[in-house]
């Protein structure tokens, strides 16, 4: 589904290389996890895939179902089925959470040639999904992410994911800053969306999340490259020994 080939990325302004040849293939129905030390380029990868400004791709490609992602506008990527749960969800004062969701859902439906959801239908679906994530009505009324706690922001990201029903979901450290219960909620939200037609790329530091969302493949990223790929046991190894051993082994 998602195919990244030899992706090189540098910061547009400073010209500093961040990604130095990332190769990664995520198949439909699979969950891949990426782990790696801070600053290794995990967030950069997720931003480049979703089309954030400020990065220059100097080499390589990234395709979603064979379509070149890197040429598309961010909203086109979203319409194509890509979703990024941000490491730091953005606060937008003045825009109601509901308005935001409805605008997004309908924009994507329109782009795909589907009919827009009526206000009534939309409300029904949101309420349902919000409930399973323990997001109360009051939170839906407030402006997007403004005044939300860390956990609320992350749950709100998962709610958006549930509403938009993307096919390729990237979760950037969605577990950090969450307590055990909140993490379970998030994991349940993700698991509920698992589907043979949908794939996940889960960026995390902790085995904890992977206990709940069982990955099929685990990658280790360091200094802008995927340096090791293995099964779920790789995550356990990181949990036990940190990254040092793995990095030493490949050096």
């Amino acid at each position: 589904m998602l195919e990244i080939k030899n992706l090189h990325v540098e910061l547009e302004e400073e010209g500093k290389p961040i990604l130095k040849g990332v190769n990664l293939t995520v198949e439909a129905g699979k969950v891949h996890a990426i782990m790696g030390p801070n600053g290794s380029g995990k967030s950069t990868l997720s931003y480049v895939l979703s089309g954030r400004d400020g990065y220059a791709v100097t080499e390589g490609s990234a395709t979603l179902d064979g379509e070149e992602l890197l040429e598309m506008e961010p909203e086109e990527r979203a319409a194509a089925g890509l979703f990024l749960a941000f490491q730091y969800p953005v606060e937008i004062p003045g825009v109601g959470n509901m308005t935001f969701l409805r605008t997004a859902v309908n924009a994507q439906r329109k782009a795909r040639g589907e009919e827009e959801l009526s206000a009534g239908e939309f409300l029904k679906v949101v309420r349902e999904k919000a409930k399973t994530l323990k997001i109360d009505a009051e939170m839906l009324k407030r402006p997007v992410n403004v005044g939300f706690s860390g956990g609320e922001k992350k749950r709100n990201e998962i709610l958006q994911m549930a509403m938009l029903e993307p096919r390729m979901c990237i979760l950037d450290e969605t577990d950090s800053g969450l307590d055990v219960d909140a993490m379970k909620l998030v994991a349940e939200g993700v698991n509920a969306l698992r589907d043979p037609g949908r794939a996940f790329l889960v960026i995390t530091h902790y085995q904890r999340l992977l206990d709940h969302i069982k990955p099929d493949v685990v990658h280790i990223m360091a200094d802008g490259r995927i340096v090791k790929t293995g099964g779920p046991e790789l995550a356990l190894e990181v949990e036990r020994n940190g990254y040092a051993d793995i990095l030493a082994e490949i050096a």
Binding site: R52, E73, E75, A78, L84, V90, A104, A107, Q108
Partner: peptide
């Protein structure tokens, strides 16, 4: 950042 966030959720620029 807000603009990108919205676009990443599929809203045209």
């Amino acid at each position: 950042t807000a603009l990108f966030y919205l676009r990443s959720r599929g809203v045209p620029e």
